[in-house]
């Protein structure tokens, strides 16, 4: 037993180091005076200043954030409907195909999704004149399509583990299906929906391949800018950008962690209360 747990510990340490050393190096070298990644030239924040003046990068970031927020919101609505249908509607006509279309995007290589959506948009434009050109609309539609699968799966697994008789109880007490959803189901599964939104947001913000296929000349997203500048060579401005993203994410996670820890404490007090009042 001892030897194996030693092995497991080693692998854990190695794994976490593997995950985090590149990110830590990235952060350290974002403060490097030298343009060369491998040579330490003293501390500096000039790459951050440069980043703030990089108009192309800033407008791309703004576009990406807008697309991510919009597509995550639509994706949460559609994905929740789909997850609801999969978890609660039993067997309906076309369920197998529906289920397939929900899970396939989870693993579908991005080049295929990107190419097929572009060809669709081109054909649609030829046929009905919509969408006119490609840009924010087409990227948003594409992102909704592949992120709603993730939302649907999250919502579906939450609903499957939720006692169905809670919804039946509401119906039994006189609430109609739509009311049950908004007053009972939605509040209970809201944590799953929030994490679905965050996941969809991140996936959208992170996507290079699909956006490259379906974007137009006027709409360059942040990953596209990063990709083209990285392809030209290593630039410390990207390190600065990475540091900012890591800082934002870490702050968010720590905040969430604090909130969760507090809820956990309240829950523990509640449980003590329940067992104390056991009469």
């Amino acid at each position: 037993m001892m030897r194996r747990s030693g092995f497991v510990l080693t692998m854990l340490a190695f794994g976490y180091a593997f995950l985090y050393v590149p990110i830590i190096l990235l952060i350290i070298y974002s403060f490097n005076e030298s343009r060369l990644v491998t040579v330490w030239g003293g501390w500096s924040t000039k790459w951050y200043v440069g980043l703030l003046h990089n108009q192309q990068m800033l407008s791309a970031a703004w576009l990406s954030l807008r697309i991510a927020a919009l597509s995550a919101t639509i994706s949460v609505i559609l994905g929740t409907m789909a997850g609801m249908a999969m978890a609660r509607f039993g067997r309906f006509k076309g369920r197998t195909l529906f289920g397939g279309m929900i899970t396939a995007p989870l693993v579908m290589p991005e080049v295929i999704t990107g190419l097929s959506l572009l060809l669709l948009f081109v054909s649609l434009e030829q046929l009905i004149g919509w969408p006119e050109g490609r840009g924010m609309t087409t990227i948003t539609i594409a992102h909704v399509t592949f992120t709603m699968a993730f939302v649907a799966v999250i919502v579906q697994s939450r609903l499957v583990s939720l006692d169905e008789s809670i919804e039946e109880a509401a119906m039994d007490l006189g609430a109609r299906p739509a009311k049950i959803f908004f007053v009972i189901t939605l509040p209970i599964i809201s944590p799953a929906i929030v994490s679905g939104w965050l996941l969809a947001f991140t996936l959208s913000l992170d996507d290079l391949v699909i956006a490259s296929f379906v974007s137009g000349p006027a709409s360059t997203t942040l990953p596209m800018v990063i990709f083209s500048s990285v392809r030209l060579g290593v630039t410390p401005e990207i390190n600065a950008l990475a540091t900012i993203i890591v800082a934002i994410v870490t702050t968010g996670i720590i905040a969430a962690g604090v909130i969760m820890a507090r809820q956990e404490r309240i829950r523990r007090i509640d449980e003590q209360m329940a067992s104390a009042s056991n009469a």
């Binding site: 039946e168 109880a169 039994d172």
Partner: peptide, 20 residues
Amino acid sequence: IPPYERPVNMMFQSYALFPH
């Protein structure tokens, strides 16, 4: 007559109390 219009109420085995 759907469940929400029946003059019948049910107590569930799991109690099905609304947790929120």
